[in-house]
């Protein structure tokens, strides 16, 4: 809970680390997670841009750092590059000390912004990239936990980055952080124990959230707790033209049919490459009908004038 944490860093403020003496100039706030606030900063030494996360609580932030460190250790072989740049404490104006860490800055839009700007045709690819990203975590024995629209950043050409690792949990332990509407337990679809299926469930809810945001919120508010179920979520899928072609996959993710992230990603990929997969086939668009009617009317008028003259 972040209620008592009010630390704001204004633009231009120089943050100096207490232990490592790293100096960073604050540019602006990028976002707020459950464990703290994230700022865009410029490191004085190399003028490079980084993201700096300040936490309210040393233990909470440190357990996030622990996760990032073990992920970095596991990724060293695959050459993903180090995510964690610096870990230190800062001294605020009022003398209070706050832990922070510095990480690579990911320039990107949130998932919904990206799809709005670049068009829905990017959705299948972005979804696939995200599933691959999750699979990487799953292979290393972690669940992301708090998967939601706000925690997915999309860079150019649909490249995906996960942000806010506060919910990342080792398989078999209780999920550290989650958001109700994306939570498997909330929908009576399984436990809150971290496994690949937990993330895949949230992924499916996220697909629904992207296409039927209003109806999903209404459903969550109106259903009695004991009536929340994957079947109810599937009703939203069936009523949406963009989601219906994915209903087999979404149903699988909502009921835990995929053994792991790789299997789910492979199934998603098969959907993408299905002939006419995400193209609308058969139905004649409305505007075409209207144009046809208009030209027919024009022809009739022309013939009328021709005959009269």
């Amino acid at each position: 809970m972040t209620t008592s944490f009010e630390l704001g860093l204004r633009r231009g403020v120089i943050v100096t680390g207490k232990w490592n003496r790293g100096r960073y100039r604050v540019e602006r706030m990028l976002g707020e997670g459950a464990n703290g606030k994230v700022f865009l900063v410029q490191r004085e030494r190399d003028k490079g841009w980084y993201a700096l996360k300040v936490g309210a609580n040393a233990v909470d932030l440190q357990s996030e750092i622990n996760v990032l460190k073990s992920l970095a250790g596991q990724n060293r072989s695959s050459g993903t590059g180090s995510f964690l740049i610096d870990v230190d404490d800062l001294c605020a104006m009022d003398g209070s000390e706050h832990p922070f860490y510095v990480m690579r800055y990911v320039r990107g839009a949130t998932l919904s912004e990206y799809l709005e700007r670049s068009g829905p045709e990017w959705f299948p690819l972005v979804g696939y990239n995200l599933l691959l990203k999750l699979s990487g975590l799953h292979d290393a024995g972690w669940a992301f936990g708090d998967l939601k629209v706000e925690n997915v950043l999309v860079a150019d050409y649909g490249r995906v980055e996960l942000v806010d690792y506060g919910g990342v949990t080792a398989f078999g332990k209780s999920v550290r952080q989650f958001t109700e509407i994306y939570d498997r337990g909330y929908w009576n679809a399984g436990s809150r124990t971290a496994d690949a299926g937990y993330d895949l469930f949230s992924f499916a809810v996220m697909c629904i959230q992207l296409h039927e945001k209003r109806k999903l919120a209404q459903m969550a508010a109106s259903l009695l707790p004991q009536n929340r179920s994957p079947e109810e979520l599937m009703k939203l899928v069936q009523h949406n033209n963009a989601l219906r072609p994915l209903s087999g996959w979404l149903g699988g993710a909502l009921t835990g049919r995929f053994a792991n992230g790789r299997e789910a990603a492979a199934a998603w990929q098969r959907l993408m490459h299905r002939p006419g997969g995400n193209r609308r086939a058969g139905a004649v668009p409305g505007w075409m009908k209207a144009m046809f009617m208009a030209s027919a009317a024009l022809l009739a008028v022309t013939i009328y004038w021709y005959v009269r003259s």
Binding site: A58, V59, S63, I65, P99
Partner: peptide
């Protein structure tokens, strides 16, 4: 206090707490 430890020492303590 955990805050008194240097950041690189905190990791292990917090791992135990978790």
């Amino acid at each position: 206090k955990i805050e008194e430890l240097p950041p690189d020492k905190r990791g292990e303590v917090v791992r135990v707490i978790d």
